[in-house]
Nucleic acid binder design. Structure first.
Lengths: 245, 245
DNA sequence: GAAATAGTGTCTCTTAGACAATATCAG
DNA sequence: CTGATATTGTCTAAGAGACACTATTTC
């Protein structure tokens, strides 16, 4: 193995599936492409890796640049690398896809770069055609998130810095698209060591008894998982299981 | 985003962690590097991706070329992509690491390319210094394999085309480094839908009652998993959980 | 008080793991 | 028969999920 022209260089990009919860639905951050091919189409944010940049670093930078997001994602992990030779008509490219998760932001995103960035409902986006292999990547991201709720504390990344148990349950119910028993959920979450810890104060959702406030604990892996197989209920359009603690 | 010199191309390699079981120990296929840097060191097999090659395809080709293996790996999945800017002193490279699993081969490998390929015990290799970030990659591969035994049928990839339940149990015991209860294991494996199916015949290990022969079933995910948390026994040097069905 | 949500108790059924009991083979 | 391994049974404790019940708030 040597660095001759026999081994053509490749353009390496970093693409990001940034998920969040808005209005009780799972949303993904999309940008409108400003150049050919696929000009004008909604696409996942991403761009080329720079010479002296690590992969996660590049992912964070792209999120900042292309979406004008000031906040750092609470969760960022590598999703997988997509390199079909025909994925980009212009040149041989390899995309290192990442999954990022953020709590719901008060306001839509102010795009600073190219065309603007916007939050889109995941289900709607998955129903469309997407540029390149972004459909595969988005699907992988959503499935990864769905799977990791089960056996990691990823759900807290969707919630704000503090949250009630009901809010956390809402995360699960929204991402999984299935209602959970409030009583059993409460007991399990509070009982799972390191998942959540009490924060001072209480919070009321308007009606009903105010709930205790929690923040994310130090654990990252849930052992045993919250739920293993789904307890025979409605089927979700996507499923399966992925990981990386 | 455009293809100008502002975005320098990168050399993309595919590296493979090929695991197998030999003599009751987990082994990994290593090659001896024939060129600088790290000439003469044991390294993971791998090489540059070609222009019109998909990633898994490249991984398979590298295994063939660099190790002279005639057989296709029973299991091949992407492990992750390693791209620290300083991982290769010669140029910016990004390595797409793969995990492959093969049943024990009757004979050591006949290297055809470069220096020779050889099976090395994983524990021993992890105790050494390795070229580039191959230590990280190997570690990720072993942890992924350990984790996936729990909730996928990966173990059958370590066994031959047919196997007894005890042989399959040996896979778990060796990879996890911990003894399992034969009775409970038998019941669970046979009871897990799609994990294994009867093959004709019986097989004797010399002593004792001959065992029924099985082959891999059609399932790929085990739901529920064989074991969740470890039942409080000796700690293994590596742990954690990874995935991709 | 009525309605709503938070949090706790209780019950039943399944499963995990420990370990005992058979079954079937080689000397 | 003895020893070894395969396979099946049995027992006990823990956990899951269903669901009833209490607590605390708004209207």
């Amino acid at each position: 193995m040597s660095y001759t022209s026999a081994f053509p260089p490749v353009y390496v990009t970093v693409d990001v599936v940034l998920l969040t919860l808005r209005a009780d639905r799972l949303h993904v951050l999309m940008v409108e492409r400003g150049s050919e091919p696929w000009r004008g189409w909604l696409a996942l944010p991403g761009g080329f890796v720079r010479q002296d940049e690590d992969l996660p670093e590049a992912a964070r930078r792209e999120l900042r640049e292309e979406t004008g997001l000031a906040v750092e994602p609470v969760h960022l992990e590598q999703l997988g690398t997509f390199g079909r030779p025909d994925r980009d008509p212009r040149a041989r490219t390899v995309a290192v896809a990442h999954l990022a998760v953020l709590p719901a932001l008060p306001e839509p995103v102010a795009g600073t770069d190219a065309a603007g960035a916007s939050w889109q409902p995941v289900e709607a986006v998955l129903d469309r055609e997407l540029p390149f292999d972004h459909h595969d990547i988005l699907l992988a991201g959503v499935e990864r998130a769905r799977g990791k709720l089960e056996y990691t504390t990823l759900a807290t990344a969707f919630a704000g810095p503090t949250f009630t148990i009901a809010e956390l349950r809402h995360v699960y119910e929204t991402v999984w698209g299935r209602p959970l028993d409030p009583g059993n959920f409460h007991r399990k979450v509070v009982g799972a060591p390191g998942f959540v810890e009490r924060a001072p104060g209480e919070r009321s959702s308007g009606r009903g008894r105010p709930a205790a406030v929690y923040r994310a604990g130090t654990a990252t892996l849930l052992n045993p998982p919250l739920w293993r197989g789904e307890p025979a209920t409605p089927p979700s359009p996507l499923a399966d299981r992925e990981a990386t603690p």
